[in-house]
């Protein structure tokens, strides 16, 4: 689906990513994890075309990212940005409808009426009752759901989520990732998510990519990737890994006093 080839990025002379190569398969749920400042969001920005790599290239369906037109790319690839939507006086329905922009012509019309599609996205995110409310009158969680509904309406095959669960309470975290997962399985979408929470990453992702020191420290299914020595070497934290009683995926229990000295 999308392929990173020797991606290198330096900002103001500081090397952030150093030759990251990875191939993301279609229909999989990928999680990018790693400690703060390791370049998780930078990698996502390079993959989505929001930033240009210093060296290397990104291939989307076999073609370089910059060979796509702006709207053409937006029909293939949708991004849920970190921090959610800023406040605005538009109504929820108007905001969700903005996701149709890549399908609109110069006048802002499109061939098929998107109303039904927007209705479905609003319903999936539980926003039907709020659809005529202005965005600035929503709570942070509601706003994040509106942002996700807008990404759904964009109908891309590849969805990128940059820390989608930050600032949400556990109920909304689970609801949001459940929705994304159900929708990903139904449409066989490819999802690449930057996640902070290792336990959530293990629960929802088919594949994990662990970034460390500008490169990929490990990659594979959560069961293979998440182990105590990796947590210690990448995060410098002591942890005990247990199997989730219901699903069997690895879950991490932190150990007080187990931290390695900071470098």
């Amino acid at each position: 689906m999308i392929e990173a080839k020797q991606l290198t990025k330096s900002i103001h002379g500081n090397s952030i990513l150093n030759g990251v190569t990875h191939s993301f398969q279609a229909g999989c749920f990928y999680g990018i994890i790693g400690p703060n400042g390791v370049g998780k969001s930078t990698l996502l920005q390079l993959l989505s075309g929001a930033a240009k790599p210093t060296a290397g290239e990104v291939l989307l369906a076999g073609k370089p990212l910059d060979s796509y037109g702006a709207k053409q790319l937006a029909r293939k690839l949708a991004v849920l940005q970190q921090g959610g939507l800023p406040s605005a006086a538009f109504t929820v329905r108007e905001v969700v409808g903005m996701g149709r922009y890549p399908y609109q012509n110069w006048f802002g019309d499109e061939k098929n009426d998107p109303a039904a599609l927007i209705d479905r996205a609003l319903e999936a995110m539980g926003l039907t009752a709020l659809q005529h409310r202005q965005l600035e009158r929503l709570s942070g969680g509601e706003r994040q759901r509106a942002a996700l509904a807008k990404v759904m309406v964009q109908e891309a095959e590849l969805i990128m989520l940059d820390e989608p669960t930050t600032y949400l309470d556990i109920g909304y975290q689970i609801h949001l990732l459940d929705t994304v997962q159900a929708w990903q399985r139904e449409r066989e979408l490819t999802v690449i998510a930057v996640l902070h929470d290792l336990n959530l990453a293990a629960l929802y992702c088919d594949q994990l990519l662990v970034l460390h020191e500008g490169g990929i420290a490990a990659s594979g299914p959560p069961r293979e990737v998440l182990n105590e020595s990796l947590i210690r070497s990448v995060y410098g934290a002591g942890a005990t890994i247990v199997a989730h009683p219901a699903t069997g995926v690895p879950q991490i229990l932190l150990q007080p006093g187990g931290s390695a000295p900071l470098r």
Binding site: S48, A50, G69, A70, K71, Q72, L73, A74, R75, L77, A78, V79, Q81, L85, P86, A88, F90, M98, G99, Y101, P102, Q104, W106, G108, Q154
Partner: peptide, 23 residues
């Protein structure tokens, strides 16, 4: 007026607008 729609989408920031296919 031709740029009214792109301006609407820019309300949420430039990165956001570019992900929706706006130059």
């Amino acid at each position: 007026f031709a740029y009214a729609n792109p301006l609407n989408l820019m309300v949420f920031g430039e990165r956001h607008a570019s992900h929706l296919g706006i130059r």
